[in-house]
Design a protein around this nucleic acid. Sequence first.
DNA 1: GTGAAAGCGCTAACAG
DNA 2: CTGTTAGCGCTTTCAC
Lengths: 346, 346
Amino acid sequence: MTLDQQEHTSSFRRPSMDDVAAEAGVSKGAVSKVIRNAYGVSPAMRERVEGAIARLGYRPRIAARSMRGPSFTIGFELPQLGNDFFNQVMQGVGDTLAGSQYQLIMAPGIGELRGAPVLEALADRQVDGILAISPEVTPEWLENLARTIPLVLIGRHDASAAYDTVTNNDAAGVGLVMDHLRSLTHTRIAHLTVRPAIDQEGARAPHAIRLTTYLDRMHEDSLSPEVVYCDAFEMDAYRAAKTLIEKPDPPTAIVAGNDTLAVGALRAVAEASGARRAISVVGYDDIDLASHPFFSLTTVNQFGVEAGRAAMTMLLERIQGGRSEARHFQLEPELRIRTSSRVAPA
Amino acid sequence: MTLDQQEHTSSFRRPSMDDVAAEAGVSKGAVSKVIRNAYGVSPAMRERVEGAIARLGYRPRIAARSMRGPSFTIGFELPQLGNDFFNQVMQGVGDTLAGSQYQLIMAPGIGELRGAPVLEALADRQVDGILAISPEVTPEWLENLARTIPLVLIGRHDASAAYDTVTNNDAAGVGLVMDHLRSLTHTRIAHLTVRPAIDQEGARAPHAIRLTTYLDRMHEDSLSPEVVYCDAFEMDAYRAAKTLIEKPDPPTAIVAGNDTLAVGALRAVAEASGARRAISVVGYDDIDLASHPFFSLTTVNQFGVEAGRAAMTMLLERIQGGRSEARHFQLEPELRIRTSSRVAPA
DNA sequence: GTGAAAGCGCTAACAG
DNA sequence: CTGTTAGCGCTTTCAC
């Protein structure tokens, strides 16, 4: 909250609206009207002002403008870079925003800094609305944030009355995966997921749901579950998977929490020797790489582009349309069977 | 420049500094001082104000603050999402910024919207400085921008006096690649690169330099160059490479402009039949995936993390240290030989 | 149709 | 040590 003093040199000069008004020999208010396309400007006035703007290279400062009204900026928080599923979502968001007057800015989590502080940083910067993928924040905290700014969460299964959500049916998706592996006669199925996943009761984050679905299913089938945790990057998954498959009695199949983890797991599998090189790996997300012939990764398509599109549409409904009742939208995932999943060895 | 009017509902309430002052029964100025850790606040005052801040959940608005001074926000423009090299750079940037009071926001190019308009959008939002990877903007335009805001470009080989650059020695990098392929007795070497690459004379963008280096080298060795253009995503490279290798007399090696393109090219190679499946592919960047056993991609490491670190450091020198003479920093790339490059078939 | 003036939330210079 | 005041660049009444 507190800020240390800093030396700041500012030899940089950006013309202000006053400069434009002086250059054009008109009042500040007139310039403002021309810029905003407001009523009541004569063609002559318009021409003079636009000439001055062009000559000076003037651009309005959003910061000043947004002290009165909107900033025409949308903030997108995402927990991490390098996960291609988020890029799918971004593409849908970008499509929806294309041609609108809104500018998108992203604030990725970096190292320890993610979740709440990043969301606050966006809110502090006067964005008109926030799109977030924040699996690690509590619903209460988000409810609170939603009281100060339009908010749409992607991935979280919260039934909030204050913010919207766009989800995919994670339970169904993992169900498809488990059905598939069981039909391939696998019994020693491990689950590789990201660290916190479900440290708080009632966590409705995607990875938490995927984990509980996996556990439930293993129990139903009277199999012993084996869960391995790692951080969210490929190389973390690689190391975790390596340890897992080097054990005396390794699993015959690994259900990875997402495709990035699956890619890491496959790195470990490819480096292993003997029967271990035949371990099946299944992911979640269906990133582009999954269909690459070198991977041919069996995975679950959860339609990230459409999720992004839906989320952005819902946010614009709040910002422009003034909607205030929460909406919760869910997509149904589909299994994509490829060659990384095979019949379990006898 | 002009903006249409929009209906904007704002039933959202964020407490202001006035609210805090009222709640604490002190003046606005006092609150400001407490927040900024300025001199001359009694412990009692501090306690009252902090109590009020906590009770109200107050957070200062950066937009208002930045009308006087810095916004403590750094803008990072990048041309595209889904290129892991940019993630390397981001990691270096994030490392350098960690623990500082600066917040990073990214503005990715989306579809047609990239380059100049995105940089302007950042500048309009009162960022204290801009980090950019803008291969498609003219040096003159950047010089102009640099007069209004501290600016560091990554990748461009411009010798600007107004903005800093961090580059890798692209000519040397492609030289290493060509040496390597020639030593493997390749003669039919094609180059796959992104569309504009070098449409303006004197373009100093990385892909332009890589292309001219390739062309020069082919000429020197009296070989006939073959250049194929595509857009910057993996699937674009896949389609371009597919057309290339399905020709009657395909190349024996493909030099891709970066690893993302190389991954796409390998998709086409893997789908091909016969001798075409043995086509060598070399990339540029050394993204994590390159070392994955499924790819084992020969490529050039250009130390993106260090480039990001250097760029951020240079930007902070300008913002905090007040440096105004331009600095130009270059990294030397290293070849990483893996199995995607093999001896040319006889 | 245009200009003057107040105010958005904050910082900073100045009195008391 | 604390309160008052004058802006920062823009939007938005309101007179003229």
